[in-house]
Design a protein around this nucleic acid. Structure first.
Length: 569
RNA sequence: GGCGUGGUAGCUCAGUUGGUUAGAGCACGGCACUCAUAAUGCCGGGGUCGGCAGUUCAAGUCUGCCCCACGCUACCA
């Protein structure tokens, strides 16, 4: 039995994510996790909220809450939404948990011992009023280039000129408005990634079948300009993991915390420990330590393209640099962006559909199907309401939903309360089953390769094949002259519905559950398609399910289009 | 400016290492069927494969230049 460790990029804590975030990591990761489990593999699927950093502090301040309380609350909100979308995490953790604190400090200590940490003193803007150092983007002032009065410390939004906070005229804190800013020296730790450049290159260029998106981004960072740059991994903040050298204090680093991008990936490991703490598992090390059983684990990460540099370079430096036998990622599946109706989704401007809003309109399966069948794998993809309506109505309601409906209603109305008896497969049935089996094997190969769109296309073709068969067999016609043959055809149709529940479950788990309940079947992958199509025997009970999917009307479509174009409060 | 990713039927997209008349779904037209959520099936119309030049017996598929979109990143390659 193969073992799969699967992680999705961690959603940041400060608010509800939009559909672009969902399809970029959590949703395809869930598809893969569900598929591997269905194939009988052992799976550990982990995700967590990414809770540290300045944006979390500011969001908490805006909400008038202590940051820890704010994070706890938003974690629950995101956890509930995850359940709403049927994301089948084995555990949904928190990067602010104690295990991540200890592990992050542990890794820092190991990296320092390996000579991979540099202490660098820099000058940064300090605000005595706020009692803290200010990140560049939280300082505003007048642009020395164009005179724009709300230029940020890193860039002027008006003339786009790159700025340094010290360039600004009348600089002030965006947090308090304080103007008594001063430049102070401060010491920070840098991860010396540049020292591992060639080792990373060797590793990346020898990976098999990685998406071009992943390798091209990784190699670009490796070779762009003067090559891979060392990265600061500490910040002058309160909210975060205190800088420690393992269990020991780090002289000169008192009051500082690790940068969120250093501790977030480590949460992938810590999350496995939280999983054990939560009583959901026994042994986290057999998933993460190659000296303790993880050497036969295949580890797959899912993320949007903006996360690739951290997962392909920085985190591997952390893992490899520790000198300890931690499990390194085997496959990085990355996604492009999903755009919204001609532009970008925008969290700040509230443009597009957010996870909570989408669920308030339609059940999870509708979104799962559209998003996964249009996953931005090769290029950026675009969400439009018209396209969403067309896909849902045609694929889900007409092709799959109606098939289940026509089969069960015909059988119940014309052939009795239970699975009908009589007749035997003929030439047409054997040809159909052979065709179906071939398509199912193709579907499996796409799912194995995590080719999400191809898999969705093949699944749809498999649904359509059922309609083709039924149209040709025409039991409503054969029943007039040969009731036995009609019984056989209807029996095959009912088995087909049960089979489709299994094949479709990774994409649309709720509908699959409805079909299983109606067919009185238990989950089970059709390794043997012929056997799967004789699972329901004459006399077995079944129910006629309610319509699986409803259609989206033109009116609804138009209404939603105007409703979500605007600004979210 | 540099780098990256794309630019294929009205729309959303496939097109492996260059090879016969460029494909799918949706939309559109016709036919069939009537079990079904006016659902399904079959057939069909529709593309100078962003532009130009080149390599080749042969290019959507390789090379060069240019145009456009999106993203990343900066006056440094």
């Amino acid at each position: 039995m193969a073992r799969h460790l699967i992680t999705s990029a961690l959603p940041y804590i400060n608010g509800i994510k939009h559909l672009g975030n969902l399809v970029g990591s959590q949703l395809p990761a869930d598809l893969f996790a569900r598929y591997r489990r269905a194939r009988g593999d052992e799976v550990l699927f982990l995700c967590a909220t990414d809770e540290h950093g300045t944006p979390a502090e500011l969001a908490a301040a805006k909400a008038g809450q202590p940051v820890a309380e704010y994070c706890a609350e938003l974690h629950e909100v995101q956890a509930r939404l995850s359940e709403g979308y049927r994301l089948s995490f084995d555990h949904f953790g928190r990067s602010s948990g104690p295990h991540n604190h200890h592990l992050t400090q542990h890794f820092a200590g190991r990296l320092d011992a390996a000579g991979l940490i540099a202490e660098v003193e820099t000058m940064q803007m300090y605000s005595p009023t706020d009692g803290r150092f200010l990140p560049d983007r939280y300082i505003e002032g007048t642009c020395p280039n164009c005179g724009f009065e709300s230029a940020r410390g890193d860039q002027c939004d008006n003339c786009t000129k790159q700025l340094d906070p010290t360039d600004l005229i009348y600089p002030h804190s965006t947090i308090s408005g304080a103007t008594d800013l001063e430049l102070r020296p401060t010491k920070h730790l840098f991860l010396r990634q540049s020292l591992m450049r060639e080792r990373l290159r060797e590793w990346i260029t020898t990976r098999q079948h990685w998406p071009v998106l992943t390798t091209s981004i990784a190699l670009k960072w490796l070779d762009d300009g003067e090559g891979l740059q060392d990265r600061g991994i500490t910040r002058d903040l309160d909210w975060g993991i205190p800088v420690m050298k393992g269990d020991a204090p780090w002289p000169g680093m008192e009051g500082k915390v690790f940068y969120v991008w250093f501790d977030a990936p480590i949460e992938y490991i810590a999350c496995a420990r939280e999983w054990v703490d939560a009583g959901k598992g026994e042994d986290w090390e057999r998933w993460w330590r190659t000296d303790k059983g993880a050497d036969d684990v295949r580890y797959t990460q899912f993320m949007g393209k903006d996360n690739v540099p951290f997962h392909s370079l920085s985190f591997p430096v952390t893992i490899l640099g520790s000198g300890e036998p931690w499990k390194l990622v085997d496959y990085i599946k990355s996604f492009n962006y999903l755009n919204y109706d001609g532009g970008q989704f925008s969290t700040s401007r509230g443009r597009g559909v957010f996870m909570d809003q989408a669920l308030s309109i339609l059940p999870a399966d509708y979104w799962r199907w559209w998003l996964l069948s249009h996953a931005p794998e090769t290029a950026d993809a675009e969400f439009t309401w018209e396209n969403f309506q067309a896909s849902v109505n045609k694929d889900l309601a007409d092709v799959l939903g109606n098939l289940a409906s026509r089969v069960t209603k015909f059988a119940r109305a014309r052939l009795g309360e239970t699975v009908p008896e009589g007749g035997a497969w003929g030439e047409r049935e054997r040809a159909f089953v052979a065709d179906l089996a071939a398509r199912i094997r193709t579907y499996e190969s796409h799912m194995d390769a995590i080719e999400v769109r191809r898999a969705a296309t093949e699944l749809r073709a498999i649904w359509a094949l059922g309609n083709e068969y039924l149209q040709q067999a025409a039991p409503w016609s054969t029943i007039k002259a040969d009731p036995e043959q009609a019984a056989m055809q209807a029996r095959l149709g009912l088995n087909l519905v049960a089979l489709y529940a299994e094949l479709s479950a990774p994409f649309i788990p709720d509908a699959a559950g409805t079909l299983r309940a109606a067919m009185h079947t238990e989950p089970g992958w059709p390794d043997d398609v012929e056997a799967a199509l004789t699972r329901l025997a004459p006399g077995d009970a079944y129910d006629v399910p309610e319509n699986l999917f409803r259609k989206i009307s033109d009116e609804e479509c138009a209404d939603w289009k105007t409703r979500f174009a605007g600004v979210r409060d």
